[in-house]
């Protein structure tokens, strides 16, 4: 079946089997370029390695039908390259040694990006609980969760400081 999506800001037409998952179409093609940041993990909606944004909301692309994306916007890490918030998150993960094998990193980054974007829009700063809740769907078997949470906390604090400075400058 034909599926029309806005992938990372660009209109794309996919040819996909009716039972295909969003993960399989994004990662395996046949259309190029393949979004290899979207990892195949559990394929049961538990590990979060395949997390992408569907209309700005995080989803496990392994348990979402490709056809579900028809007429909607899909965002992967590839589409957020160079985005200041994503760049800050990536730098913070590296700085806090929150990346080891890296398989969970794209999913974690998508989840954290969504959280911080949402908090910024609401004018709030996420606390420990909100960060852990946002990462609740992303399993990591290398570093664990302390370092990713510390990285996200650091970025959130920077964003809050920038927000205060901007408010002061006005």
């Amino acid at each position: 079946m034909k599926i029309v999506v806005k992938l990372n800001g660009r209109n794309r037409e996919w040819e996909a089997a009716p039972g295909a998952t969003l993960l399989s179409v994004l990662r395996d093609g046949p259309q190029e370029p393949r979004m290899t940041s979207v990892k195949r993990g559990c394929e049961t909606g538990d590990c979060g390695a395949c997390t992408v944004l569907l209309d700005g909301q995080p989803v496990n692309s392994c348990v979402v039908a490709a056809a579900r994306a028809h007429g909607h916007a899909v965002t992967t890490i590839e589409g957020l390259a160079g985005d200041p918030l994503m760049t800050a998150l990536q730098a913070a993960l590296v700085e806090h040694a929150a990346v080891q094998c890296g398989y969970c990193s794209p999913g974690m980054l998508v989840s954290l990006y969504h959280l911080l974007k949402e908090c910024r829009a609401a004018g709030t700063t996420p606390g420990d609980h909100a960060i852990r809740e946002a990462l609740s769907g992303n399993l990591c078997r290398c570093t664990g969760y302390v370092k990713p949470v510390a990285a996200a906390t650091a970025v959130a604090a920077t964003l809050a400081a920038v927000g205060r400075a901007e408010a002061g400058a006005r």
């Binding site: 909606g45 538990d46 979060g48 569907l54 995080p58 769907g137």
Partner: peptide, 9 residues
């Protein structure tokens, strides 16, 4: 129920 990305859909 589930986790955040599951609850989205």
């Amino acid at each position: 129920c589930g986790n955040r990305p599951v609850r989205t859909t």
